[in-house]
């Protein structure tokens, strides 16, 4: 009953916060544009089967009589060596890249955040152990790790994703650990300890929710980096396999034709660039918007 009575009040502070964020967003045009692009890309990813003119070309269908045609009104971005519409394939690539990157980042977050929070909050031997493991994983070049995993499990987009998650989580562990170390000195954590709140609850209810802002910023910036890495792995043949319309893989195949079919490599490259750029700009902007220092003024 009471809860119902105050439910409108419950929203009030959040609304004010949101309004303030919107104000900061409005002030920062580049961030606004990048946010629009990111939202647009997500939309494209969701509705790609309906907007791609030749959805079949993203799968096993081939069209050899139209191979390597330059861009035209029929094929906006031209066709590839099997006569497939590059425009349709680039559109579908959005879905693949965003999906894979998102899963890889979320996987890294799931591993990285709790480890960092535990290391930072508990400290001592456990911290030392976790951080050394983190160091070990950080000293593997992600590419080598991906190579190793591809060698063990066979190259596929999914395995590339796993490889990226394995090499990416230590960054979040470091980030969250740093936050946790400063948070645990905060009095609300001390207060919780004095009350007798269990350590688990302190970590998950007090520490982690308060590290979320910097993690979101980092994650949105990492989306760009992860998309780049996925396409690199696919380019090397360690990620997506034909006929998947993955951007990196498309560029890799295009190498054999790039002297006489420039469009083949250009468009997937532009797609990667725009997507990564949008996420990087968004991350930059979010950092500014969520930064407590900017918020104070």
């Amino acid at each position: 009953m009471l809860t119902k009575l105050f439910s409108s009040k419950l929203m009030e502070p959040k609304l004010k916060e949101a309004k303030f964020s919107l104000f900061l967003l409005n002030r920062n045009k580049l961030t606004k544009i990048s946010l629009i692009i990111v939202l647009l890309l997500i939309l494209i990813a969701v509705i790609s089967p309906w907007i791609a003119p030749y959805p079949g070309h993203t799968d096993l269908e081939v069209n050899p009589q139209d191979k390597l045609l330059p861009p035209s009104s029929q094929y906006f971005f031209g066709t590839d060596e099997l006569g497939r519409d590059i425009f349709s394939r680039v559109i579908f690539g959005t879905r693949i890249s965003l999906n894979t990157a998102l899963v890889a980042v979320i996987l890294s977050l799931i591993i990285g955040i709790p480890l960092g929070a535990v290391a930072g909050t508990i400290g001592g031997k456990i911290d030392e152990l976790i951080m050394r493991i983190t160091d070990i994983f950080l000293s593997f070049p992600p590419l080598l790790l991906a190579i190793a995993i591809a060698a063990v499990l066979g190259p596929s987009l999914q395995n590339a994703m796993i490889a990226i998650a394995i090499s990416w989580w230590p960054w979040y562990t470091r980030l969250v650990r740093g936050q946790a170390i400063s948070l645990k000195e905060r009095q609300f954590v001390k207060a919780a300890e004095a009350i007798g709140t269990s350590q688990n609850k302190i970590i998950f209810k007090h520490i982690i929710p308060n590290c979320i802002s910097p993690v979101i910023v980092q994650a949105s910036m990492d989306m760009g980096g992860v998309i780049l890495t996925i396409s690199s792995l696919s380019f090397l043949g360690l990620g997506a396999q034909a006929p998947t319309p993955e951007w990196g893989l498309m560029i890799s195949t295009s190498r054999n034709f790039f002297l006489n079919a420039w469009w083949y490599s250009i468009f997937p490259g532009i797609a990667i660039f725009i997507t990564v750029l949008a996420f990087n700009l968004l991350g930059d902007g979010l950092r500014e918007i969520l930064d407590p220092k900017t918020r104070k003024n």
Binding site: G224, L228, S231, S232, F235, W247, G248, I251, S252, S265, P268, G269, I272, F273, V276, L277, N280, L281, D284
Partner: peptide, 10 residues
Amino acid sequence: VGAVSLPTFW
């Protein structure tokens, strides 16, 4: 930001 967003191989 452009420089860090470009795929190297491309």
